[in-house]
Amino acid sequence: MKEVVFSPNKNKIEEVPYYKPIAKEVEVFTHSYKQKLPFLLKGPTGTGKSRFIEYIAHELGKELITVSCHEETSSTDLIGRYIIKGAETTWIDGPLTIAVKNGAILYLDEIAEARPDVIVAIHSLTDHRRELFIDKLGKTIRAHKDFMLVASFNPGYQRGFKELKPSTRQRFVAVSFDYPEAKIETEILVNETSIKESDAKKLVNIANKIRNLTELGLTETVSTRLLVDAAKLIESGLPKRLAVHVAVVEPLTDDLEVIKALKDLCDLMI
């Protein structure tokens, strides 16, 4: 049996990701990292959770390993598995094991989507033990001193469907993310896409108007990510109304009446 060893730092982020702090999240994360406390990012989709962790990993000069969790994500996917190569069996480390060994930041995006055995697998890494038990190898690995576990969670979307248990939540330092105030969101659009400030303000006004229309019953509302997409299309030359329709309105819903209502609203505001 052969064990494959991965070299560290292959996932370091070389370019500086643009991120605009909106509260004390950078300061809180920095102190949590020093104390090696697991970190939970809470908030709606498209509010900058993934961008934040990319930014902070770059600032710290640390390797970042990201796993986008879904309903089929299992502990085996994270820890590793045996594969057959020719006549021999080889063990391949999973992203969690690589991060634990190399001292990387492991980011579990939408952790509540993963199977329950994933939560069980990380429990011993989120308390004083900081250990990973690999059942298939019969090994317990002590986490590298620089290892840090970060997860994200969308409470609004998951409520009543898949939620993190209190026993899991209380293992993390947690910070809530939300949509930035209008001035900051406008600045983000301008920096991300080079769109005119006047057009960026219009997009932000549209977003805030839709965010307040709770009677529409939207599962998710307009994220900053959708606004960035619309701004990119406008900046590339697509007509503004069409750009807003395809990048903001259509992704929000499949209900034809709601689409029409949102389109009319956006057309007026553009």
Rank of each mutant, 00 (worst) to 15 (best):
Ser152Tyr: 09
Ile119Ser: 04
Leu164Cys: 06
Phe133Tyr: 15
Ile111His: 00
Gly61Tyr: 09
Ile83Tyr: 04
Leu137Ala: 04
Ser152Met: 09
Glu72Gly: 11
Glu54Asn: 14
Thr45Ile: 12
Gly86Thr: 07
Pro95Cys: 05
Leu96Ala: 06
Ala104Leu: 11
Gly61Val: 05
Phe52Leu: 10
His128Gln: 14
Ala112Asp: 13
Thr126Ile: 08
Thr76Ile: 15
Glu163His: 12
Glu131Phe: 03
Leu78Pro: 00
Phe161Gln: 08
Leu60Phe: 13
Leu132Thr: 02
Pro116Ser: 11
Gly94His: 03
Thr126Glu: 06
Ala57Pro: 08
Gly80Tyr: 01
Leu108Ala: 03
Ala114Thr: 07
Glu59Cys: 07
Val150Asp: 07
Ala87Pro: 00
Arg169Tyr: 11
Thr45Glu: 11
Ile111Arg: 01
Arg169Cys: 06
Asp93Arg: 09
Leu106Trp: 00
Thr140Glu: 09
Asp146Cys: 02
Lys62Tyr: 04
Leu132Val: 04
Thr90Asn: 06
Val118Ser: 02
Leu106His: 01
Gly86Met: 10
Val150Ile: 14
Gln170Thr: 13
Leu125His: 05
Phe153Gln: 05
Ile111Asn: 01
Val67Asn: 01
Leu132Gly: 04
Ile83Lys: 14
Asp77Ala: 14
Gly156Gln: 14
Ile79Asn: 00
Ile141Asp: 01
Pro95Arg: 05
Lys139Thr: 07
His58Cys: 02
His144Asn: 15
Ala151Pro: 02
Gly103Cys: 09
Thr126Met: 13
Leu132Trp: 02
Asp127Asn: 14
Thr89Ile: 12
Lys49Ser: 08
His144Trp: 05
Thr89Leu: 08
Glu59Met: 13
Ser152Arg: 11
Ile92Met: 13
Ile119Asp: 01
Ser50Ile: 12
Ile84Tyr: 07
Asp117His: 11
Ile122Tyr: 02
Thr66Pro: 03
Asp117Asn: 13
Ala104Arg: 01
Phe161Ser: 13
Gln170Arg: 15
Val118Leu: 04
Tyr107Pro: 09
Met148Tyr: 00
Asp109Lys: 15
Thr45Gly: 10
Tyr55Gly: 03
Asp117Gly: 06
Ala114Asn: 03
Lys101Ala: 06
Arg51Pro: 01
Leu78Asp: 00
Thr126Gly: 13
Glu63Ile: 10
Tyr55Met: 03
Asp109Arg: 15
Phe133Ala: 10
Ala99Met: 10
Tyr107Glu: 04
Arg51Ile: 12
Val67Ser: 01
Lys139His: 05
Glu163Met: 12
Val150Ser: 05
Ile134Cys: 07
Thr90Pro: 01
Arg159Cys: 06
Val118Gln: 01
Lys139Ala: 12
Asp135Lys: 15
Ile119Gln: 07
Val120Tyr: 11
Arg115Phe: 03
Cys69Ile: 06
Lys101Trp: 02
Gly61Leu: 10
Arg130Ile: 07
Tyr107Phe: 15
Asn102Asp: 10
Glu63His: 04
Ala87Glu: 13
Leu96Lys: 10
Leu60Cys: 07
Ile65Gly: 00
Gly46Trp: 14
Pro155Glu: 05
Pro116Ala: 06
His128Lys: 13
Glu131Val: 11
Ile105Phe: 08
Ile79Cys: 03
Ser75Ile: 00
Ile105Met: 12
Tyr157Trp: 13
Lys136Phe: 00
Thr45His: 09
Thr47Cys: 11
Ala112Pro: 00
Pro155Leu: 05
Ile56Cys: 05
